[in-house]
């Protein structure tokens, strides 16, 4: 365990140096910053506007008050930024590595290849989303008059963390399949477009979809569960389930990567 932690910290030390170079290379594009800020503001305004449409004659959506829904939307926005900063750039790189056959160079490095490949690049363009998402969560939390306690804070952090892990694992699972399929990137688009459903609390959906979003595509655990934790209305049973799910997903993604690598090395030699 200690050995594993040490190797992990080593990887992150190397990664930090790479992040600074990737930030440097991103800053080459001044226009991007402007575009990114406009797009975050516009996206947020649009999302809040659409959400307000559901509340204009009524006062709740699937049992969620307006401010409680804002927390869900905030979590969704944070996840969006996390995707832009880490998942999207790194995992699209994996696909390219596999296609160009440069994965070999990565595999020859004396480090954990999954960790390396997953966090090699940091794109600063997700930061505006993450910040505005946090703001939205705080606004929603304060106005919904939920009780604050250290216990709920810890639980919230844990749930957000497990939502990060689940989302990461989903992306990584799809990226791994690029070892067999050439243009796997489009599968990620499917994932991204379905995750849009996470903008709204899960109880706003009809029963059948709710079941799908909980058990097949764990959208419920990505946004609704962390929001419930923040609002201090999460049951321990669900919290426990979320943690189990995160660990299981991480484990599966790791195993699947190992399995795929066996294929990769035996196929390319």
């Amino acid at each position: 365990m200690i050995k594993y932690l040490r190797s992990t910290s080593e990887v992150f030390r190397v990664l930090f140096s790479f992040w600074s170079t990737s930030i440097a290379s991103e800053l080459e594009y001044q226009l991007n910053l402007v575009i990114e800020i406009i797009s975050v503001v516009a996206n947020l305004t649009g999302s809040i506007f659409i959400l307000s449409l559901f509340y204009s004659p009524t006062t709740n959506l699937g049992g969620w008050s307006w401010h409680a829904s804002l927390v869900v939307l905030g979590i969704y926005t944070i996840l969006d930024g996390y995707t832009t900063s880490f998942l999207h750039p790194n995992l699209s790189r994996i696909v390219r590595h596999v296609q160009n056959g440069t994965l070999d160079f990565v595999l020859l490095k004396p480090i954990n290849s999954q960790l390396w490949l997953s966090f090699r690049i940091f794109s600063p363009w997700g930061i505006p989303s993450i910040l505005s998402g946090i703001t939205l969560v705080i606004i929603g939390f304060i106005n919904s008059q939920a009780n604050f306690s250290i216990k709920s804070l810890l639980l919230s952090i844990l749930m957000v963390l497990s939502s990060f892990i689940i989302l990461y694992s989903l992306w990584f699972l799809i990226a791994t399949t690029s070892i067999w399929f050439v243009r796997v990137w489009n599968a990620n688009e499917v994932l991204r477009s379905t995750l849009v459903a996470g903008r709204y609390p899960i109880s706003a959906y009809p029963e059948s979809l709710r079941r799908i979003f909980t058990f097949i595509l764990p959208i419920a655990f990505l946004t609704t569960v962390p929001a419930e934790a923040i609002l201090n209305i999460l049951s321990y049973r669900i919290a426990f389930l979320s943690l189990i799910l995160a660990i299981a997903f991480l484990f599966i993604s790791k195993r699947f990567w190992m399995f795929a690598l066996k294929f990769y090395t035996s196929a390319s030699s």
Binding site: I23, A24, L27, E28, Q30
Partner: peptide
């Protein structure tokens, strides 16, 4: 033109 390094990048950005 841009010199290497993050500081130069920021300067270059402006």
């Amino acid at each position: 033109e841009k010199k290497p390094g993050i500081r130069a990048s920021l300067k270059h950005f402006v």
